[in-house]
Design a protein around this nucleic acid. Structure first.
Length: 283
DNA sequence: CATCAACCCTGAGAGC
DNA sequence: TGCTCTCAGGGTTGAT
């Protein structure tokens, strides 16, 4: 499931130097094709096809789990949701229509960017102002401007279950199911811990743990789960995610699966208890 | 405000 | 083999 590290990997590729080989920056869109209309969230598919013509990609950025292609006029935003993926085909020879292709953009030199999405949850927006789409997002967890005091204060403002709160994109932008489970295990916090009961010391360690797993994910080009998302290696480093029944890397206890906020959640029942642990938490 | 169910979808795995 | 059923999962919406 594309989360921050997977999206970051794709953004870096689109900028050049990544697995796509061909950067899209400075390329001009000659025309587009929409094979599944609902993929275009804004405007209508027909308007999108009309308005996208002639626009040039000036930059590619990430905000939370959104890919933002800054154009010479306006912005094209992409959210991969569950199963979205982007590929760039350099030459006509390698261009082919694959199952689940939803939108393709052909540049004036023949290079093609294709949005493929088996589950059809992914969306694209063509808007003047990106803030209209991503304006409500919380801070970036990897941004240095998010310090411990700020993060602790954010947790104090809510009395919610920790895991759903961390995954709430208006609270923090980019955390998904995988990296949240991994970070919580790293700091031995139970996913049902009430956010306002997290101490400042725990908040500091949690922020550090989130950064640690996100950066590890980026270094490994993201995580490839099942058939979704290709090229990542971070799935080999999972501590608890999808490791139900396997031994906790810290204590050897069997990893358990539970449901929190309607999401499959993986914890070590020995390391991550709901009762506050005053001793031996450091690790 | 916090929580939850339903919804959008389809591949995959289980059960038969 | 092949059919049917169930589920996962990010995010939105509406209800409690």
């Amino acid at each position: 499931m594309p989360e921050l590290p997977e999206v970051e990997t794709i953004v870096r590729s689109l900028r050049g130097g990544g697995q796509f080989g061909v950067p899209v920056i400075d390329r001009q869109i000659a025309h587009g094709q929409v094979l599944w209309e609902k993929t275009i969230a804004v405007p209508t598919a027909a308007q999108f096809l009309q308005e996208i013509v002639g626009r040039r990609v000036k930059d590619v950025k990430r905000r939370g789990k959104f890919i933002i292609l800054r154009l010479d006029q306006g912005n094209l935003l992409v959210h991969l949701r569950m199963s979205g993926d982007i590929r760039v085909e350099a030459s006509m020879a390698e261009q082919e229509q694959l199952p689940h292709d939803r939108v393709s953009l052909v540049f004036d030199d023949g290079v093609r960017l294709v949005f493929n999405d088996a589950r059809k949850f992914g969306r694209m927006w063509l808007v003047d102002d990106a803030a209209g789409v991503v304006g409500g997002l919380g801070p970036e967890p990897l941004d240095d401007s998010l310090d411990v005091a700020t993060f602790y204060a954010m947790l104090q403002r809510h009395q919610r279950q920790l895991k759903p709160l961390l995954m709430d994109q208006t609270f923090l932008a980019g955390m998904g199911n995988i990296y949240t489970d991994e970070a919580l295990h790293l700091v031995r916090l139970h996913p049902l811990t009430r956010s306002h009961q997290v101490s400042e010391a725990q908040a500091a360690r949690l922020l550090e743990a989130m950064r640690q797993v996100l950066q590890a994910g980026i270094r490994r080009n993201g995580a490839s789960i099942d058939w979704v998302y290709r090229g990542g290696q971070f799935q080999n480093d999972f501590r608890v995610y999808q490791r139900t029944g396997e031994a906790c890397p810290e204590c050897g206890m069997s990893i358990e699966r539970m449901v929190v906020g309607q999401r499959g959640t993986h914890i070590c029942p020995q390391c991550q208890t709901l009762e506050p642990i005053e001793e031996g938490v450091d690790g």
